[in-house]
Design a protein around this nucleic acid. Structure first.
Lengths: 108, 108
DNA sequence: CATACTACCTTATAACGCAAGGTACTAAAA
DNA sequence: TTTTAGTACCTTGCGTTATAAGGTAGTATG
């Protein structure tokens, strides 16, 4: 997979998942990996960024199967960022697809 | 527009345009700008990269309206890169859209 | 001759994903 | 009981790419 495609899109993916329920980091990696390749080294810095930007709050919960899990909960600000990103993503994809299909009058 | 979205996609856009006819750099900026924001500082380094990777060949042509134009012509290797990038782009967008729609069994 | 447009180019900077590493807990296998 | 595997957290350094901001020249117009 083209690494570059992911730039900026992973933000959108993470925010979208968090809009449905709280997730812990490792779980986000597992779920997103079903659709696009992602590594842990990517997700943890991203989540830290989200927290310092006020997009998420966190809380710890113990686990039966390993170390405690740090859950991430979407804030109102994060919700707003998600809404905007979704719109941007859609119009971006539309623009690229129009261009790829050659949907334009070429003045050549 | 989210700058990050563009990473890697501009390559695809440029190769796609060049698959239809030869373009000069300035012209590529004008055409792509109709769909997604792009600046000259982006396109020229990218075109140089394409040339050193053997994706394009170039030739000069004089112009009535300004300095000579450097045209870019897609090579066979560039064509192959385009084909692959198109496939990757499509499956990437599908993956992201599936994730955004929540098209998956969440084992929560 | 000054401005605007065309058309080429370079340099320095910022953002982001990832490989590669590390820590530590639980549970099962050897 | 030691080792291995799986879960779960984390950091550092690196490479790639887009851009802003600048520069050089050519043509044409006022």
């Amino acid at each position: 997979m083209n690494i570059q495609f992911k730039k900026g899109v992973l933000e959108l993916c993470v925010l979208s998942l968090l809009s449905r329920r709280d997730y812990y980091g490792y779980e986000l990696v597992e779920n997103i990996s079903r659709f696009i390749e992602i590594s842990e080294g990517t997700i943890y810095p991203l989540l830290r960024r989200f927290r310092s930007d006020g997009y998420v709050t966190t809380y710890l919960e113990e686990s039966q199967e390993g170390p405690p899990r740090k859950y991430y909960k979407l804030s109102k600000k994060g919700r707003e960022a998600l809404d905007e990103l979704e719109i941007e993503w859609e119009s971006f994809v539309d623009g690229v697809n129009d261009l790829l299909r050659g949907d334009f009058d070429d003045k050549s």
